[in-house]
Nucleic acid binder design. Structure first.
Length: 602
RNA sequence: GGUUCCGUAGCUCAGCUGGAUAGAGCAACUGCCUUCUAAGCAGUAGGUCCUGCGUUCGAAUCGCAGCGGAAUCACCA
């Protein structure tokens, strides 16, 4: 494993720092010296912009660059040459360094992935957190894929990650489904209808809404104001009563609730399995919703919270530029925020976490701002360990998804559709006809999920993204299957090299000179460890996706016009296959961070 | 109205803490499969980086203002 201090960039930074000090008396720490990769149109590998130093050096940019270049070259043997264009100092690293890099990493199956430090405090990542009244849709898909891949990403950067899910299994929404099922369900079950459990429950949620709307309409026809009608509609009144009974532990209601939630969980489990996500621990809101009340009492005692005349409890955040926030209702029951305070404390205590990451949509930015503030007001110094990974909404061409308008993109439907597309595409290409049915099915699933996951994860998590169902998800260009395809092609070469040509990939190749494209690929590989680091710091799987795409572009260009197994020089052939192997490892490791599997052939 | 986020090619998106002539993919148009998998490669065309002002050697990137869009500001979760 390459240690960061040995990386050539770091040595360059350090040496440049020394040179700046000795030549111009300029104090600059190694970290403050920014190196960038040299742009393609210029010769070199790393570039130093010298403008920041010309003032103190009191010389022209060209002179400064030349002086620094000469002095640095003097001290670092790996530098082959340097050149100066205006204020840009370009260093060219000799091929020996790149060859040595490939030699030392070519067999490292975990290249780019850091090992978890022993005994490291865990990072707890909460994601998914569904409601149990309807099936998962595209928005949940983004959440789940992000949660899963960010967890992998943090783990790849050496963190001990625990994935948790907090299921919102109680509340008025599930009562609506329950009530509608009682009324209109005729005893339907997933078994009797063949409908997936979460979809069946979702069906009754929609059913409730339909009848409820009708009641509201009738009340308004009788002259009721809309607001009153909404409150007085019999269905709503009954749903509220059901919630109350639930809270009182009414056996009949609890049984119904258990049964219907059971259906939903079976459905969710299936969708999670399809998406390839999992959790280390699942919390249920029915078990946590009472947590936090003690905290509120503590806050009252401390004087950081206050009680209004009606008995409700609030936190005054006006001093922080926010509003007052309700923490206990007038009847003493808790709200979402109360529960979240409690679960945060619970989680902090349970895990001794270094960080508590919440993968939650940016519509809840305000909620998390408040959560952190209240925690710190309550005297918890770990409040700043709470990190809201705030991601953007998924929009459709005509705006937001609205379940009432039937514009939601269902997760199961979408996955099934993608699998169908993958099958069609594969059959069209006809490259896998000799595979068994089972292998083919697995491949279609792998490609379908690869396309879907990559499509979603390649965009910056913080940004709102658009999904156009009509155009569907592509399999060409900057896509998951493109990367999977590149991997399959490479593996094919490596297999043939070993099996058919008996190449010995363990030999060390040195003393040769690299082509432009080879050097491009090696430099790209060389970047991977720092890309993983940066991506993890930014909680951005997108940076991993973009890196992988770039690497594949470079490789395919190389593949197109460079003989590999057809190369006649044996050592050169061996080196190129070693390079192939390393690229395939990098592709596999980066794709695995995204939760995408890569095939041996396709 | 207050707060926060966003605005880059026809469309979807990159562009890291300010750096060289702003990049990909899709869509359009040209080439390349008797040779390691053409789900590929090479090329053409496409830009007022929303607008204006400012900061400085240098701005898509930082600051301010404006325009446009989104989210949020519930005794919902």
């Amino acid at each position: 494993m390459l240690i960061r201090n040995n990386m050539i960039e770091h040595r360059l930074q350090q040496t440049i720092g020394e040179v700046l000090a000795s030549l111009y008396n300029i104090e600059a720490t190694a970290d403050s010296i920014v190196l960038q990769t040299t742009r393609k149109e210029f010769e070199g590998d790393f570039t130093l912009v010298v403008f920041p130093y010309v003032k103190q050096a009191r010389k022209s940019p060209e002179m400064v660059a030349n002086e620094i270049g000469a002095a640095v070259k003097e001290r670092i043997a790996e530098i082959e040459s340097f050149n100066v264009v205006k204020g840009f100092l370009n260093f060219k690293i000799g091929d020996a360094y790149w060859l040595q890099f490939v030699g030392s990493e070519k067999d490292n199956a975990t290249f780019g992935i850091k090992q978890c430090a022993a005994g490291a405090a865990p990072v707890v990542v909460e994601y998914s957190s569904p409601n149990t009244n309807k099936p998962l849709h595209l928005g949940h898909i983004r959440n789940n894929l992000l949660g899963w891949s960010v967890s992998n990403l943090l783990a790849a950067n050496g963190h001990n990650v625990k994935k948790v899910n907090l299921v919102n299994d109680r509340g008025i929404h599930i009562c609506k489904s329950m009530l509608a099922w009682q009324r209109y369900g005729n005893g339907e079950t997933p078994e009797s209808t063949g409908i997936k459990g979460d979809h069946l429950v979702g069906k009754y949620y929609v059913e409730f809404d339909k009848h409820y709307k009708e009641e509201v309409r009738q009340l308004m026809e009788q002259g009721r104001a809309e607001e009153d009608a909404k409150k007085e509609a019999p269905l709503m009144v009954e749903a509220q009563a059901m919630l109350k009974k639930w809270e009182e532990g009414d056996k009949e209601i609890r049984d119904l609730w258990n049964m219907m939630n059971g259906w939903v969980y079976a459905g969710f489990d299936e969708t999670y399995r399809q998406m390839g996500v999992a959790f280390d621990k699942v919390y249920y809101e029915s078990q946590t919703y009472l947590l936090g009340k003690e905290l509120v009492q503590k806050g009252l005692d401390m004087g950081v919270l206050f009680r209004k005349e009606d008995g409700s409890v609030w936190c005054d955040l006006t001093g922080d530029g926010l509003d007052q926030k309700l923490l206990l209702r007038r009847d003493g029951t808790s709200v979402y925020m109360t529960q979240d305070l409690g679960t945060a404390l619970l989680r902090h205590n349970e895990f001794g976490a270094e960080r508590l990451v919440y993968v939650v949509g940016n519509e809840q930015d305000y909620h998390f701002k408040v959560l952190k503030l209240v925690l710190s007001k309550l005297g918890f110094d770990w409040a700043d360990k709470v990190y809201h990974l705030s991601y953007g909404m998924v929009e459709l061409p005509n705006g937001k998804m609205k379940s009432r308008e039937g514009t939601v993109v269902d997760a199961d439907d979408l996955i099934a559709e993608m699998e169908k597309t993958a099958e069609e595409m594969s059959k069209e290409h006809g490259k896998n006809d000799d595979m068994s049915q089972e292998e083919q099915k697995q491949l279609y699933h792998m490609l379908a999920l690869g396309a879907l996951k990559y499509f979603i994860l390649k965009v910056d998590p913080t940004k709102t993204m658009l999904f156009n169902p009509a155009e569907s998800i592509d399999f060409n260009g900057n896509t998951g299957p493109f990367i999977q395809y590149t991997h399959a092609r490479i593996r094919s070469i490596v297999r043939k090299g070993i099996e058919e040509q008996n190449l010995d990939l363990s030999q060390t190749i040195d003393g040769m000179s690299l082509t432009e494209k080879e050097r491009e690929i090696i430099k790209s590989l060389h970047d991977l460890p720092s890309v993983v680091e940066q991506a993890a710091e930014n909680y951005s799987p997108a940076m991993i996706a973009n890196y992988a795409y770039d690497l594949c572009k470079n490789f395919n260009s190389f593949y197109q016009d460079t003989p590999i197994l057809r190369e006649e020089n044996g050592r050169l052939k061996c080196f190129r296959v070693q390079l192939c192997q390393m690229v395939s490892t990098a592709i596999r490791n980066t794709m695995n961070i995204l939760g995408i599997e890569v095939p041996e052939r396709m």
